[in-house]
Every structure is written in C-alpha cells, then in structure tokens.
Write a protein that binds this DNA or RNA. Structure first.
Lengths: 371, 371
DNA sequence: CAGCACCCTGAATCATCCT
DNA sequence: CAGGATGATTCAGGGTGCT
C-alpha cells in the first residue's frame, strides 16, 4: 500500500488510495461485499505483430507493453475469470461492474462475466469522434470500443440514475451509444520526456458519464487496473470514494499526483459541458443503401441537359467519368465545384425533384437529436 | 430441400435456394470450401425448445435442465460451436463470416468463433436511428446491435471493397459504427393477419452494406438462419448467389415469394469503385521504352529538393546511388518505403507533374480490362 | 489577436507479387 | 517457401508558430 492509504475503520475497506501489486492479489486483501462499483479497463490482448506506418511514413506508436501480452486465449480467459471472481466477491449484493474492451478481448470478457454470475444490463458503445484511421485500407476504421455494464447478479437492485442521464442527454433517454472524443490535448498526461505517460488513458468524460449514471455520492468505486488514475480523478471530483490497484510504480506516482490536484465539483456544476452537436452528415450513398434511389436509376442536372446513372456504391457515371455527385456535377459543368444535392434531380410521380429532398427526409427521420 | 432447389452441377453447391431443416444438418449436406460468405443472425433466446444441438448432433435437452445460467449458457455455447464449425467447413479458404447479435448472445458467439479459428476483422455496431425506448427507465435505451466480421482464418485473403465503402460514405473511410434505421414500413413483411411476419427482420440496408463491402458479384452467400430471407433478397438484387437455411415452413414460403419479386440490378449499376490495386502493373521502364521519358532526363522529388536522372534501363541515379524509382526515393528520404510514382515529378510545359500521370496514360490506353 | 498553415498523434490484430 | 521488389495507404482535432 502507498503512503496515502487511509483506511475507513468502519467498513474495513481502504478508501481514496492506490494499492500496489497484482490486481487479483490486492483484491484478495479487500473484504467481501465492500464496494459499490467496479470499473475495469483490463489489458486488451491486442496480439500485434509487425510495425505499422502511416501513409506519410511516420511510425504508429503501438501498445507493445508486456502487460498486454498473453500466451494464448486460454491464458487470457483464466486471467479474466480470476479477476472477475475477486471483483464479484468484493462487490456489495447490489453492486455493479463496468468493463471496457475492444473486439480483441471483449467477447471473451463478456462470456466469462456471464459465466461468473454477473447479469448484463447493457452493452454500451463508446463511439470515438476522432479515432485513428485504418492506414492501409484493409479494414473498417476501428472507431469504437465496447463497455459492458452488469449487476453482480440477476436480482441485484443496481443503481441507475435515469433522470441524471436524461438531463445529460438534453432531455431524452440516454442511449447505449455514447459519442465522446478520445483523450488528447492537455488532459493527456505526459511523462518527464513529454511522451504520453500511459498508452491507453481513457477520457474523463467517459468515466464521468458512468459514475453520474450508475453510482451515488459517497459510493465506493474500485478500479483494479488503475493506470494513471482516471477513475480516481473523476470519482474524487464527483464525491465518490475510490480504490485503485496498479502494479507499475510509475503509473501510481502519476495517478497520485494527478488526483491530488483534483477538486471536488460543486453539486450544481455537474450537468454541463457536453459535446456540441454538429448537423448530421448524410452521405449520398445512404440514399442508395436505404432504397430511396436504385442503382441504375438516372439522375438529371438542374437544367435537364445532363444525365448520370447511380451505381451501387453511391457514385455516379456520366459519359466516361465516375465520381461523387459533386465531382461529376462539377466536371459536367466545367465548374471548380458543385453542390450535387441541389444539382441532381430524380423523377418522382412524373416530376423532377432535387435529391436533396431525400436527404432532408433522412435527417427528419433521425429526429431532433442525432447524437 | 424446397421445390425451388437448383443445384449447380459443376460446383456441387446448390444456389439461389432455400434448404429446409435444422441449420447444422443442412450445412452438413454442403460440400467443403464452397461458400464465399456466411451471414448469420442466430437466435439468442436461451430457452429455445429443441433447437440446441451438441457438436455430435445430439439434442440438448436444455428445457428440462434447471434454469441456472450455467447450464443454459453451456447449451447455447454448444449450439454455437456446432453451427460455427459447419459454417467454417463450408467456407472457402478466403471466405468470411458475419454474425449479428445483442448483448444476450454476442459475447458468447464472439468467443466461440475465436476459439473455432475465425479471425476477427472488425466488430461493427449497427446504431439504430429509431430504436425502441426503454419504457421502464431502468436501463439505457438499447439502441444498437453488434456484428462481428471475421475471416475464416488468420491468413485469409478476405474480400474488402475499400473504395466502394469509402464512396458510399462520400469520400471518407467507412467506420465501424453504422447508423441505419430499423426495418419498418413497406419493407417490414406482414403475415395474413397483418402482424409482422418475423420478430427480428433485419433492414435490407444493413445487408446491402455488408455485401457491397465484403463480397464480389457472383459470390455465394450462405445464411443459415434465413428467416424471411433478407439476405437472399439483397444478394439477388446485387448479383450474388445465395443459399438460405430455414426450419420454419411459414418463413420459407414468405421468403421465396419475397425473393421472387426482387429484380437483379443491371450490370452497369452493380459496378463499384475499383481500388488502384486492381489496376494493371506498369513497370517504370515502360515509360522510357515508350519515349514518355528520355534517358538522361531529370526527375525531381515531391518537394523539389531532390533530383535524380533517368537511365536507359528504367533505373534512377541520384548522388552515388542507383535503383528503382521506389528505392532511390526511399533512400533519399530516409523513409522505410516510398511510392516512386507519386514521389517523382517531371517537367511538362513548364509545370512539375508526377510521373504517375504517365502511368495512368498508359493504363487508359490499354482500355477496360476483362474482369 | 485573429487567422491560417503546418505538424503531430491516437488500444492497430493494416500487402502482395514475383523470382 | 523464403526473400526481395513493388507500391498503396489517413481522419479529426489539438498545438504551435508565423503572418
């Protein structure tokens, strides 16, 4: 234990402190049924092989730390079951668990936590507004991570602050997909050399939403993979008690220093600062996918003089050129640019109608809150 | 098999038909390595009476078991492993699998498909633009489902139409989160009583994106949980072959009728933006042979800072090194690699132009290639 | 100080063909 | 089958520094 350990005599559980060492062993030192929430960001077991360069030839700084390396799926599963069992033991009967992961590990973790008796309440998708692209064009941009929210057992009376989350979401029910930026800028902790202090630091906004939604003030939150202490920082700000477990001394030091700088937020200051909503971008291809226009259908220009055919991937063909609705429109007109939405028309009930009305239709179906 | 069965004698795999019966047994009747893509929407209700089979094809008597989570999860896992094993057997070496599910089952399915040797390429979130709200306010609105895209094995050369998906998304990389509406309105099939014909009918837009992105025209797509045939309908429209397996006769009838009404899109509309990788290779030396560049001519780097001279054999000389356009570019930049086609420029009418335009000129002179 | 151009970076299972 | 050569490939956002 670190020198900041303060043990609450009444419950027997340490509070607001970082325990050092392996997470399973450290949890063994905690009493049964002493924690309200576990937030866990376990190693993802990424299984990366070679190196990866960006198209500009710069090197991608990959997660190659020893703590993320497991010899096999079986070894990872055993590790997962072990820490989940301890987490479940230290949870109060009405406690709950959050775990975050990617496709590399989250399916295994989800299955194991079901096996352990946890009861899944939701899976929540963290949709990153600014993910790293796929540089080689071999897969989809991996633009999200998955969190699982589960109560200790099927009958648990878990905490869910429905109204608080609804307020955070501007008055409508909070959904299972959360759009939040990754952790960058001043929030991203740096080491003495100015490099990122931890390879996988999570944004505070994510933990903020978790704790506002599924804990009460005064609750004890345990993070068995504490890292640089995002969980502790947000817990302190929100008036929750926290316990962190971290093996690496360098991370513990950074986390302690970080949390010591945090001040508790006033109750009224909470429900603010959510990401601003941008107008939804509707790609033309979506009109084709959704059957509003058919591949092979002919579009005509505003004047009616030009024509193009829609292809299956949402590009247009006219004469010998193909491209987006904007590119083909601009080329046909010899213009530097062209707003294809208003330029191109389709036939509807005998009339020629700009394709923009179809876009407006989709936007209106999305409702007032596209986020 | 249904009366519409048409067996392609050459390949031994039936095409464009619905097979009746249990999906595992029906797949056993298909030859090895005969299918390009499996799209599966398996049941996730753990209390399926009589649908669960062990790998030895014996029935799992799950309903008589006590309903502790362990026994039912295990039964579901055995069922999952059994159909995944058959799906993997019938897939071609470079084939791929899509599975869709919710938090009730997707973690178990994901873990089992990794265990079976499938290699996850992406998990994709179908974010519903119009989900059902959570009426009791006890959880988050369950606003998404999860799909897993996996190749048959780690080394598989899976199909990914990067450029087509990028075009569908109007020029930026397709991400792993797809916003699409649920299946409603005219698309939603009704039975004789006007009730929805199938409880979990998927939108065609979802299958459209899957097939445009990860199959080619002419591919064989197998759906072992065919239901009312969304996979078949989209496959037919997009010029893919399809095989459905469905045990319920009522669903089979609806699906057959539905698919018979679908018309295949014309070939020109099916065309999709091609990647550069599909273009023929032109050796740099050909530019010299054809007189598009002269031996002795000077090329300059993108920035204009570096220069090299063309030699008669299509190599470059700069400083004291010679080599290909790529090798010399990489060496001069100290980069791990370099695309010489876009790096090197020549003078044309006073302007600096990348040598890639000369290659494009040759490619276009070659005319359209037979596919 | 505003505006702009440029640089840097993020949990990444990121190539294929020919000899 | 190993090894070498070719050549395809990125988005959003924050920081920095210049005009």
């Amino acid at each position: 234990m670190t020198n900041t350990t303060i043990t609450a005599a009444r419950s027997g559980v340490p509070r607001d402190t970082i325990l050092s060492g392996d997470c399973i062993e450290a949890m063994r030192g905690l009493p049964d049924a002493s924690v309200d929430l576990v937030f866990a960001d376990p190693p993802y077991n990424l299984q990366l092989k070679g190196t990866l360069h960006r198209p500009d030839n710069s090197l991608v700084d990959a997660v190659d730390d020893d703590w993320d390396s497991f010899s096999s799926f079986r070894a990872y599963d055993e590790f997962t079951s072990a820490w989940l069992a301890e987490a479940r033991r230290v949870l109060k009967p009405n406690g709950a668990l959050w775990v975050i992961g990617s496709y590399h590990n989250i399916f295994r973790v989800g299955a194991k936590l079901q096996d352990a008796g946890f009861w899944i309440l939701n899976d929540v998708v963290w949709r990153k507004s600014n993910p790293m692209p796929n540089f080689r064009g071999k897969r989809l941009t991996n633009a999200h991570e998955t969190m699982i929210w589960a109560s200790r057992g099927e009958g648990s009376k878990y905490t869910f602050n429905y109204e608080a989350l609804k307020a955070l979401n501007e008055g409508t029910q909070m959904r299972s997909d959360w759009v939040l930026p990754i952790c960058t800028g001043h929030e991203r902790l740096k080491d003495a050399e100015g490099q990122k202090a931890h390879p996988t630091q999570k944004p505070e906004s994510l933990l903020y939403r978790v704790m506002v939604g599924t804990t009460n003030a005064g609750d004890v939150v345990l993070d068995p993979f504490f890292g640089t202490g995002t969980t502790g920082a947000v817990a302190k700000a929100l008036g929750r008690s926290w316990i962190g477990i971290e093996r690496e001394e360098s991370y513990r030091k950074i986390a302690e220093e970080r949390i010591s700088r945090v001040r508790r937020l006033e109750a009224g200051a909470l429900a603010v600062t959510q990401s601003k909503r941008a107008a939804p971008r509707i790609p033309f291809g979506q009109l084709v996918e959704r059957g509003l226009l058919r591949p092979g259908e002919t579009l005509t220009s505003m004047s009616g003089q030009r024509a193009a055919k829609v292809r299956a991937d949402g590009t247009l063909v006219a004469d010998d050129m193909t491209g987006s609705i904007h590119q083909v429109g601009a080329a046909l007109e010899g213009a530097p640019s062209c707003n294809g939405w208003t330029y191109w028309h389709f036939r509807k009930d005998g009339a020629r109608v700009p394709i923009d009305v179809l876009r407006q239709q989709i936007i209106s179906e999305l409702g007032p809150r596209p986020n």
